[in-house]
Write a protein that binds this DNA or RNA. Sequence first.
RNA 1: GCGAGCGUAGUCUAGCCUGGUAGGACGUGGCCUUCCCAAGGCUACAACCCGGGUUCAAAUCCCGGCGCUCGCACCA
Length: 487
Amino acid sequence: MNYDEIMKLALERGFYFPSCEIYPDMPAGFWEYGPNGVSLKNKYVELWRRELVRRDGMLEIDGSQIMSKSVFEASGHLASFADPIVKCTKCNSIYRADKLIAEVSNVIVPESADLEEFDKVIAERKILCQKCKGALGKAYKFNMMFGVGIGPEATPAYLRPETCQSIFVDFPRVFKVMRGKLPVGIAQIGKSFRNEISPRQSLIRMREFYQAEIEVFCNPAKLNEISNFGEVENVELNIMLDGEFQPKRISCKAAVESGAVPNKLVAYYLGLLVDFYSKTGIDVKKSRFRKLGAKEKAFYASVAFDFEVETSLGWLELVACNYRSDYDLSSHAKLSKANFEVMDNDQKVLPHIFELSMGIDRSIYTMLDHNIIDDKPNERVYLSLKPYLAPVQLGILPLMKKDGLQEKAESIFAPLRTKYDVFFDSAGAIGRRYRRLDEIGAPLAITVDYQTLKDETVTLRKRDKMDQERIKISEIEAHLSKELQYP
RNA sequence: GCGAGCGUAGUCUAGCCUGGUAGGACGUGGCCUUCCCAAGGCUACAACCCGGGUUCAAAUCCCGGCGCUCGCACCA
């Protein structure tokens, strides 16, 4: 399904829409989830907890979004999450200083060089704006982090650009008080903030966005001692190595043996991830793990795979899988003087970290993209969401408003509404009401008709085939729990 | 940020050039009809992105801002 159709559904049915849309001064890149979007997102998150956090015995935290300046000194974000920028004084075009210099004059000035260094080379080589030949202004740093001033003195702090920093700084306490044992995953759902230069495409590139991150703390000497590896060894991964253009389909086991994936720990989590995504209703046949080359990797990663899925917008990165080694813990240990070493049996180790950094909003978008079905023969568009992810699970529809059908339907609705996401609708033609439920992916609808008044039965309609069966009112809940069951 | 195009009800759109009552479709609410898949009738609701200027009069012309789409650049 294409982007416009997805946007239309999102806007018309309350999945998501622009933030502060009634005011003209809201910058781009901020979006709200409406009622159906929240319900879908909550269920997605619950599946994530179920299939990753609980399955693997991870510990979940919820950290604060504002973090101290020291955190980002240690993490490297103050230095490395910023680009040296030059601006044309005439046409305002913006360039990455290091890239522009390299391109025009073949001089390599490292990204992290002093700003004067860029100015000097630009002056010496007489580099001008590539578009209008205007003079370039002084180089300055553009940091993608949002700064905030705390309290009356406006003490500098930052909105976190990735949720995982909370996990790192919390690690010593969480590991101790939760009696952690390596390898252990610490997980978190939360918001991150990045001051993107140009946010685009609604949920795809936002300035404020949700991440679901998992940081696996492990003993670097035991990366091939993964007791649960058997659970995923036959899970098939599409892996595309650096420089390749076609992914190879290969089992987790074979991926380790062939060296495509460096060790069993990484392969295990890549396997869990594919397993998880196959249960979200995203078509994992259209997915690949793309191994990143040196130039593409984030500054903290030593091995990186991007989990990408093909959508109507092309290949989209949904999860960054980074082996961060001890980069984070050792730099936090150094700056904070806190002790990040833990005991692994009788060995003292500074853990290494492998992370699965998932973009929730992009995943939600992809679920819509892969599940909107244009059912032309039946003149409808429906969302083929997995029943356990549907924002509305059950519609309750009286066939008519009159003759006591409405009241009967309400009496069925009342006890169910606190247990399930049930939607009651009595307005208009029955077919129209079915269509509306189809559009938001409600897998089930029960209809109260005249026979209900005689024999306490209702019809149960299923979304995908539009087929109906007659069931007893007393059996509605049993049917619901069967239909909404997780795989 | 640059360039091009664009901005009218919840959604799609006419009107803009040539200034003068904002029209349609779908939608949504109510009523009628109808005992199962967007039917019909009546009726109602709902919009000119924001600010300034020109003018007797601005959706329309001019300026500025904001946003959207695409490309470039930037970025996860």
